[in-house]
Amino acid sequence: MREFKGQTLSWGWKDAVIELILHRAPGNEIGSVTLEELEKFAAVLDDLSRESHALIMHSSVPAGFCAGADLRELFERSQQMKREEAIRSVRDFLERIHAVFNKIDASPLTTIAAVHGVTFGGGFELALICDLIVADKMTRFCFPELRLGLIPGFGGIPRLKRDLGNAVVRDLLLTGRSFNATKAQQIGLVSQLVAEGEALRAARATAVQMGKFDRRTSAAAKQFVKPIPHEELCREIDIFCDLFAQPAVEAGLRKFVESTDALPYLP
């Protein structure tokens, strides 16, 4: 299936490059429908990969690449369940997200996240599964999860540890502060920093360059330098579920849901 148009995302194929486009306003929050559609994408990825050399992920939503998990849905669903059932449900959701993310992370394609604006939490984690991040100057990254009494749950910490020094990881995680694309490039997270609105163009140009190389060689190089941190990813799910059982999380989520602010967990 070379083309798909869903409720939250779409994909298309052109000149051996797949583009996965997030289009759920206001902020591409990742909830159950996004997950189902990502699973559809993961299911066709092997077929698409046979005739492709690159995958570009981007967002058509002005606010940014992705604001993270759909916390409103998470809160409302967990309110309808008993605590143990809610924790099981969260674990199920995380395991499914991890399966999709691991599949894309390990894809033989060269993958590029072309990001702009808000790239927070689960959205940051989605960008981290890609081989390269191309960011426009107005991009802002953040792991705000500690403000809710949680840690990132979509594989963010193990992947950040894979890519960056531990001191930087601690800073980003433990302060929960947001930082811009210039800083992200300085610490080695962003490979290309471009002018506002230029990330997709730059990502497409990069994908064309990648098409010049032998696909098997590119895949072998990627496999060599980008191992999937499976053990830590599993531990992350365990820690997240333990924390999710704490009463502070429910209070944090309630505060978030009841806020009318556009970004209730900042500063």
Partner: peptide, 24 residues
């Protein structure tokens, strides 16, 4: 403006002045 737009302003100010402004 809302907090999302304030964040946008923060990023523009950081880019303009070449400084980091932690949101906290």
């Amino acid at each position: 403006i809302d907090s999302l737009q304030a964040l946008d302003l923060l990023t523009r100010l950081e880019n303009h002045f070449h400084v980091e402004l932690p949101d906290y």
